[in-house]
């Protein structure tokens, strides 16, 4: 009996160690997204940008999201420093096409649309681009598993994602590292042909309200040699947020 149990345990261990995915690469990405699915999300973010000379600027914002992954709406509103307080960004994600984005500036009481062509521009001096703020629906890319690597002590699937023809992107391909234990995204690298443009490293992974998520993102911009660190505080899911607060009119009203 002991021998059988031991053999079974060994087989299980071997099975786990070889990390044969239960489904293909698309399914891994889908699973990862499904596991973070929530009706809404809220956090207070602290954003630090460290430029190539080591000079650091800090800002704070409040982030709210409503809706399913890839078909959601999000509002990001700056709260500090005083010069940028009230500036907001509305992102409306679509499963079948690029997102719509608007910016609100309280000082001149204007909302302006961010054109699709402009998505590769950096988001207000940070390491993110406007495209990086979009949610990537799983069906907008083609995937393949290119290996398994250790990331921060956790074994990860390394998956290459290439945008489908209909998807407009600054990246020709993206590499994603998903932790095999909890399907959390540990690292993302955006490439343009043979040049890595930026990488996003996800750390401080914890379970919040039963959802595994990262609470610290660090972006490395290879062109400008700058780092951007986003720390999520007071993260909450499934709050009762109102859809009418995720419109351009709401930006104006609340701003």
């Amino acid at each position: 009996m002991n021998r059988i149990a031991a053999a079974a345990a060994l087989a299980t261990a071997v099975f786990a160690a070889t990390a044969v995915p239960p489904q293909g690469p698309r399914e891994i990405v889908q699973t990862s997204q499904d596991r973070t699915r929530s009706k809404s999300e809220h956090y207070e973010g602290e954003l630090q940008v460290i430029d190539s000379k080591g000079h650091t600027t800090s800002k704070r914002w409040i982030y709210d999201r409503i809706g399913a992954f890839g078909d959601s709406k999000a509002v990001l509103r700056f709260t500090a420093p005083a010069e940028v307080k009230g500036v907001a960004l509305l992102i409306v994600n679509h499963p079948d096409r690029a997102s719509d984005q608007w910016m609100w500036r309280p000082a001149i009481e204007r909302d302006t649309r961010i054109a699709l062509q402009d998505r590769r521009t950096r988001f207000f001096g940070t390491g993110f681009s406007f495209e990086d703020l979009e949610e990537r629906d799983v069906d907008q890319y083609d995937y393949k598993i290119v290996g398994a690597e250790n990331m921060d002590g956790a074994l990860c699937w390394k998956i290459e994602a290439a945008p489908k023809l209909a998807k407009s992107s600054q990246y020709t391909n993206t590499y994603l590292w998903f932790r095999q234990d909890n399907y959390v995204l540990a690292e993302l690298q955006g490439w343009s042909k043979d040049r890595m443009m930026r990488s996003i490293h996800y750390t401080d992974i914890a379970q919040v309200q039963g959802i595994w998520t990262s609470r610290r993102l660090e972006v490395w911009d290879t062109e400008r040699k700058s780092r951007t660190i986003l720390t999520l505080e007071k993260l909450q899911f499934n709050l009762p947020l109102r859809p009418q607060d995720f419109t351009v009119e709401a930006l104006r009203r609340i701003g």
Partner: peptide, 16 residues
């Protein structure tokens, strides 16, 4: 530098 140092791009846009 080659960086887009408008000191702070967000403040540049936010302040008229």
């Amino acid at each position: 530098s080659d960086d887009d140092v408008i000191d702070d791009p967000l403040i540049f846009l936010a302040q008229p």
